[in-house]
Amino acid sequence: MKKLFTVLLAAFVLAVVNPTKSEAKVMYDGAEVVKGQTGKMTFKKDIKVYKKNPNGTFDSLVVKRNNFFRTYDIEKYGGKTFYQMGQYRVQATDLVVFKEVPLKIRSSFYNNPSYIYINRNSMYGNALYGTWFIGSDPDNSITNNGQQLTFCGGTDVGTIECLHYPGIDLKIAETKVSEIGVPFELTKAADFKQSPIKESITIKTLKKGRILYSEGLEINGYLYVTWKSDDNNQYTFWMPVNLLNPVVDK
């Protein structure tokens, strides 16, 4: 993905900023779709769902058979799938009927969408958990009636290979572009992440006060930054934006 980033970043910087998306309602399958929604669920019988409180206790909610609920984040790990239904988390079972909102519709809420691979149960093609794609990359397209992301790229032997990623395995986030080379100070010790998502691989835990340099790309609340180590090596990965303060000349 880093290979694509350099080309795309230059294009973004030169591009005119897209206007704000329309406020008109987006409809699918007879219901309104909202930003961040991945699909909708119904249940084959009345069941109890739970949310975990910050103090470790749980609250429950009885959901009625055939009532429809919007779903947002999806997690796949340990051979299981979980849907976030507001504050409540529901495991996929035979009692849960999930219907996906097509990726094309989900993308319509974003000016410059990025797609993050979020399936920890399996690797597809070269995509590990956290692999990211920028939607405006000419190598990407939404195919299969808007249900999947297709990425076509060159291989080591000079041929073109196309891989198809199901929309349900992708999280969408806004892509923000800013000036390259801006220094930031880390406000507390934090994990330097391989990908712009919390559960991705930690490269190294950096200490408070480290100076990091922006590479001009922000996705999912993470800034792509370069850290120059004491041995003069450079490492470029992701750090949460809310832990970075711009360095002001005194």
Score class of each variant (00 low, 15 high):
residue 34 V to C: 07
residue 141 S to L: 15
residue 172 I to M: 09
residue 193 K to E: 02
residue 54 P to R: 09
residue 143 T to N: 11
residue 230 D to K: 14
residue 166 P to F: 06
residue 245 N to G: 03
residue 163 L to F: 12
residue 70 R to F: 11
residue 9 L to T: 07
residue 156 D to T: 12
residue 27 M to F: 14
residue 144 N to K: 15
residue 206 L to P: 02
residue 24 A to G: 08
residue 234 Q to F: 12
residue 198 K to A: 14
residue 42 T to P: 00
residue 149 L to Y: 01
residue 246 P to S: 10
residue 172 I to F: 03
residue 230 D to T: 10
residue 162 C to A: 09
residue 189 A to H: 06
residue 228 K to G: 03
residue 41 M to D: 01
residue 244 L to E: 00
residue 177 V to Q: 10
residue 55 N to L: 07
residue 196 P to A: 02
residue 198 K to D: 12
residue 54 P to G: 09
residue 128 L to A: 08
residue 249 D to C: 10
residue 12 F to G: 12
residue 143 T to W: 01
residue 163 L to G: 07
residue 163 L to Y: 12
residue 249 D to Y: 11
residue 197 I to K: 00
residue 190 A to F: 08
residue 189 A to L: 05
residue 95 L to G: 14
residue 137 D to Q: 07
residue 66 N to F: 07
residue 166 P to D: 06
residue 12 F to D: 10
residue 33 V to D: 00
residue 114 S to A: 15
residue 174 E to Y: 02
residue 173 A to K: 01
residue 2 K to T: 12
residue 185 E to A: 11
residue 100 E to A: 14
residue 78 G to S: 08
residue 204 K to T: 14
residue 132 W to A: 08
residue 21 K to R: 15
residue 177 V to D: 09
residue 205 T to G: 07
residue 3 K to A: 12
residue 228 K to V: 13
residue 21 K to S: 07
residue 96 V to F: 07
residue 248 V to S: 05
residue 242 N to E: 11
residue 88 Y to M: 08
residue 27 M to G: 03
residue 249 D to M: 14
residue 121 N to Y: 07
residue 199 E to R: 02
residue 75 E to I: 09
residue 119 N to P: 00
residue 214 S to H: 04
residue 245 N to C: 05
residue 192 F to L: 11
residue 56 G to W: 04
residue 137 D to H: 06
residue 73 D to H: 09
residue 141 S to C: 12
residue 131 T to G: 00
residue 18 N to C: 09
residue 73 D to S: 13
residue 205 T to L: 04
residue 202 T to F: 02
residue 64 K to V: 10
residue 226 T to P: 04
residue 179 E to N: 13
residue 183 P to L: 06
residue 143 T to S: 12
residue 11 A to T: 10
residue 164 H to K: 14
residue 105 I to D: 08
residue 17 V to W: 13
residue 130 G to R: 03
residue 145 N to V: 06
residue 46 D to C: 08
residue 187 T to W: 01
residue 136 S to L: 15
residue 69 F to T: 02
residue 216 G to M: 08
residue 71 T to D: 05
residue 92 A to K: 13
residue 81 T to S: 06
residue 14 L to F: 14
residue 88 Y to N: 04
residue 166 P to L: 05
residue 18 N to D: 10
residue 62 V to K: 15
residue 4 L to H: 15
residue 239 M to K: 03
residue 150 T to N: 13
residue 47 I to V: 13
residue 87 Q to C: 01
residue 123 M to N: 13
residue 199 E to A: 11
residue 39 G to Q: 06
residue 171 K to Y: 05
residue 82 F to P: 00
residue 44 K to G: 09
residue 246 P to Y: 08
residue 29 D to F: 03
residue 25 K to S: 10
residue 73 D to Y: 11
residue 152 C to G: 14
residue 239 M to N: 05
residue 218 E to T: 11
residue 229 S to K: 12
residue 73 D to N: 11
residue 51 K to Y: 13
residue 19 P to A: 05
residue 100 E to N: 12
residue 17 V to T: 15
residue 135 G to K: 03
residue 123 M to Y: 13
residue 100 E to L: 03
residue 168 I to T: 11
residue 68 F to M: 15
residue 197 I to F: 02
residue 192 F to P: 00
residue 78 G to I: 02
residue 54 P to M: 07
residue 61 L to V: 01
residue 239 M to P: 05
residue 130 G to Q: 04
residue 42 T to G: 03
residue 38 T to I: 00
